[in-house]
Design a binder for these strands. Structure first.
Lengths: 183, 183
DNA sequence: ACCTGAACACCGTTCAAGT
DNA sequence: ACCTGAACACCGTTCAAGT
């Protein structure tokens, strides 16, 4: 039976996990699908479009468990942890997300949801935007680095602890700079 | 006269600014130097070695103006601003630095200098490391994103303000979580 | 010491033509 | 609708041989 877009995407995700982003080529993907390289272009307009689709799929994990209980700090931390978890779930996930040309719709969604949440908790709009931006920048920066420098060098437990501590620091910064005294 | 390593490096930096990281090829570089592609491999062992050399050069700017006056917060902010400035000084500078396989010695230097400084100001070693890591992760994440999403879309003034605000938030988090009450 | 010539093993993408 | 065949314009890298 003929290929569908979903088949191409699934094979691409599997190939990414096996060979990594640098070695992910359209020709290898075509091989794996038993098809000529040109055939892929019937399903996706370009390699970049395919990478965008992979990125979007990676982020569905994050969107799935966006927090809806707890105070603003707990929710923000859950957002940060969820974003990192989604990126770590696939090889080179952080680089894939961070270097997409356009921001993913799912990412935008999560971002604005957090901004709204902080505003509801008493933050100004500008403060909320700066705060969520600080959190996402930190998460992207941290996860990108831990995933790029080869995974075995530092035990995962330390990386997790370092992340949690850093995220705590950023959230404490929000407490001090953008949230009202009582929140 | 024959080429020296410094000539190759200088041409590579110039080419990077003109065409960007994705379009920077050894063959274009060889063309520009009036030489065959293979000739480059006498001067650098691989393209990656050349990219590492460019990255190191980008970071000398940062190392040059590491702060040595002011309280810990001012110095930490100056470190963050200097790191961003160095990355923004070259096209795709953030991606170049953030996706190097090994951390640059200059980066390590700046990192440990900041850790020592925070310890001298009263922080625990673990706290200082987590704090500096939070700052660098934020700076890398923010700068990577602002430089990747095409430069014209948001006025530079807004990007600068967003960065300064985010950095303030992170530093305020250090104040709350890793520095002693009086510092 | 420094570079050429020439190759090797790859890339992403296009497009007429087939089925 | 979906794919082949075949090409086009590229890559990074190696290495004998030249000067």
């Amino acid at each position: 039976m003929p290929l569908r877009q979903a088949d191409v995407l699934a094979a691409a995700v599997a190939l990414l996990d096996e060979v990594g982003l640098d070695e992910l080529s359209t020709r290898k993907l075509a091989d794996r699908l038993g098809v000529r390289p040109g055939a892929l272009y019937w399903h996706y307009a370009s390699k970049q479009a395919l990478l965008d689709a992979i990125a979007e799929q990676v982020l569905t994990r994050m969107a799935a468990d966006l927090p809806d209980t707890g105070d603003w700090a707990e929710r923000l931390r859950a957002f940060g942890h969820g974003l990192r978890r989604a990126m770590l779930a696939r090889r080179d996930g952080a680089r894939l997300i961070s270097t997409m040309n356009d921001v993913s719709p799912l990412m935008m969604d999560g971002f604005t949801q957090m901004v709204d949440m902080l505003c509801a908790a008493g933050a100004s709009f500008e403060g909320a935007v700066a705060g969520v931006d600080a959190v996402t920048s930190f998460v992207n920066g941290y996860t990108l680095e831990e995933q790029a420098r080869k995974v075995g060098r530092v035990p995962r437990e330390f990386l997790d602890l370092g992340f949690a501590t850093g995220l705590d620091i950023v959230v404490a910064g929000l407490q001090a700079r953008v949230m009202p005294p009582g929140a």
